[in-house]
């Protein structure tokens, strides 16, 4: 592949005592790609993602994110990534504007940048009327979109989304994915974990983790072909059937 690889993982492993949460996983993610990270609960996807975000040190293996080694430069990685957790990453008792100012400030944006980006973001999401209202009062779907927009306010190279659409209705999920596409078009790489299998279809490539290992990695259509399945659901069940770890 001649594309620029922004995430490289080689035999990345994380052990907690005797338990190997992530077992020698290897993969590359290209710039601007939407990379789906699937797996049942407890398969190790969150642990793998935490290692790539610099939240957790790998036990062994190698990985680089945005060109920086996860062992040596976790701080540099942090400057180049955005992150949105499965719960909201916004403060409910702060207004939309205050949330933007806070996160912008945390990522070291100047006041002018925060102001410009903030206005742009509020306009894009059509939230002008709500800008000075507390986030608490927003509908769930809006909160999610806002949280995502705030997570990329500093224009990171990669954004990590940890089950971003949990608890959101299908219509809002679809809108959310439209936002993800727009972002990917700007060249921001999307690394998304999900357990909604229909969402896997939206990704450029999907990796499926079972028991800490990556048991399949391909485009959704490639996976369906290999496993002779009509949708991602079937692919997933064929792979997960042999899982020994139960969900948590």
């Amino acid at each position: 592949m001649d594309k620029e690889m922004v995430i490289k993982a080689d035999k990345l492993t994380k052990r907690f005592g005797d338990f190997t949460a992530v077992d020698a996983v290897s993969f590359d993610v290209a710039k601007g790609e939407i990379f789906g990270f699937l797996g049942a609960n407890g398969a190790g996807k969150t642990t793998a993602m935490r290692m790539l975000c610099g939240l957790s040190k790998p036990t062994s293996g190698e990985a680089s994110v945005a060109g920086f080694d996860v062992f040596r430069y976790p701080e540099k990685i942090k400057k180049n990534i955005g992150y949105m957790s499965q719960k909201f990453s916004l403060y409910e008792d702060l207004t939309i504007k205050e949330n933007i100012e806070f996160y912008g400030g945390i990522y070291g944006l100047t006041n002018k940048q925060i102001k410009d980006k903030g206005t742009e973001l509020i306009d894009m999401l059509d939230l002008q009327a709500e800008a000075n209202k507390l986030v608490r009062g927003l509908p769930l779907g809006w909160k999610q979109k806002l949280a995502f927009s705030v997570a990329i306010i500093h224009e990171p190279k990669i954004v990590f989304l940890d089950e971003p659409t949990g608890g959101v209705d299908p219509a809002n999920r679809k809108q959310f994915w439209e936002l993800i596409y727009e972002t990917a078009d700007k060249g921001i790489t999307i690394f998304v974990t999900t357990h909604y299998l229909d969402e896997a279809e939206y990704c450029d490539r999907v990796s499926i983790m079972v028991d800490g290992k990556i048991s399949a990695l391909d485009t959704p259509s490639g996976l369906k072909k290999t496993y002779n399945a009509k949708d991602m659901n079937e692919v997933f069940f064929q792979l997960a059937r042999n899982a020994t770890r139960s969900g948590d």
Partner: peptide, 14 residues
């Protein structure tokens, strides 16, 4: 921690 915001702060360069 409960709100998930601590994780976001820890991922940030702060």
């Amino acid at each position: 921690k409960e709100m998930g915001t601590l994780e976001v702060l820890l991922v940030s360069p702060f």
